[in-house]
Design a protein around this nucleic acid. Structure first.
Lengths: 170, 170
DNA sequence: GATTTTATGTCAGTGATGTTGACTTTCCAA
DNA sequence: TTGGAAAGTCAACATCACTGACATAAAATC
């Protein structure tokens, strides 16, 4: 049975953090933390008729103003039909502006309106408050480790996108 | 405007990791990593007619064999109606056994059957493989920080449950 | 100039997951 | 014995994802 077995590859004591039990705890930690992580913005979104998908779209449009639908599609990893439904309501409600591309008129460049920016700030401040508290309680060294593990966990193509977005360390 | 502002509370350079930009990167890291984290088991579940909710139920029943429906409910944070639909299919398909409680016959104690254990191993091995690779590439110190931040991010009641589950450090 | 490819939008149908609300059954405990 | 907790059930509904098919416009290519 593989269940309950250790996963050391012969490296000795320094690999104790790679036991199946340790990995399972990590899996549970990811699950529980992510749930808390999404709970705060979800509470805000209940007041509107929006869901998590709207939040994601708003987040990335704020991070890369003018990005195209296709780029957003890649980052969100959903189908265009799914994203389109979300974008349509956001444009209709005046939170997002979709400007026809200047060079390539097939493209739509997406921007947040002032109203969209306001919601973005609300949502992200709720999320940042939790992240800030967690960072503060864990300390800078832990935060570095946190980011390292998360980055190593991402799919390579997505990690490229992630790393290319503007960073807080100038 | 609060947007783009720093969040230092006067502590000086040691709090640079708490800038809004750093927090936003952390938020994105969580999102992208979690997506990768769930992608592997999701691929396996496509072959069955199960979804992520079934995976979660199977995971926790494996971790705490004999747990009651109510305990599982608390850990999953869903309604009993939602969980019931999932549990019913798992029991019907012979992956989960729901034994009437010995002391309190209203309760149901949940166990994985051999068939259920087999699927659990498949699913969790896929997830552990990614976690193992990330841990290995980031190293033990990073893993400690990773866990610290995630634990600080959880809701307190859930963290209690999380910490009370068996740990890999004996 | 005609054809193909690309970017986007739209409509229809489906499935998994979640919700609320109302109700029943079982059965422990005051 | 009665009240209430635990569990299960049924119904209706919303969100968010998917696939598949099709439309439009513009760029790219032949």
């Amino acid at each position: 049975m593989m269940q309950g077995g250790r996963t050391e590859t012969g490296g000795g004591e320094s690999l104790l953090f790679l036991t199946d039990e340790q990995l399972r705890k990590g899996i549970e930690a990811m699950y529980f933390a992510y749930r808390a992580f999404t709970a705060d913005p979800d509470r805000i979104l209940e007041n509107y008729e929006y869901g998590r998908a709207h939040h994601r779209a708003i987040h990335f449009i704020n991070r890369q103003p003018g990005l195209t639908v296709n780029t957003l599609l890649t980052m969100l990893g959903v189908t265009k039909q799914s994203l389109n439904r979300v974008l349509r309501t956001l444009v209709e409600d005046g939170l997002v502006e979709a400007r026809v591309g200047r060079r390539d008129k097939r493209e739509r460049n997406l921007f947040l309106t002032e109203k969209g920016s306001a919601l973005e700030r609300d949502l992200s401040e709720a999320q940042r408050a939790r992240m800030r508290a967690a960072y503060r309680s864990a300390g800078p060294a832990a935060v570095t480790g946190f980011r390292q593990v998360l980055e190593a966990m991402m799919d390579p193509e997505i990690r490229r996108h992630y790393l290319s977005m503007k960073d807080g360390a100038p």
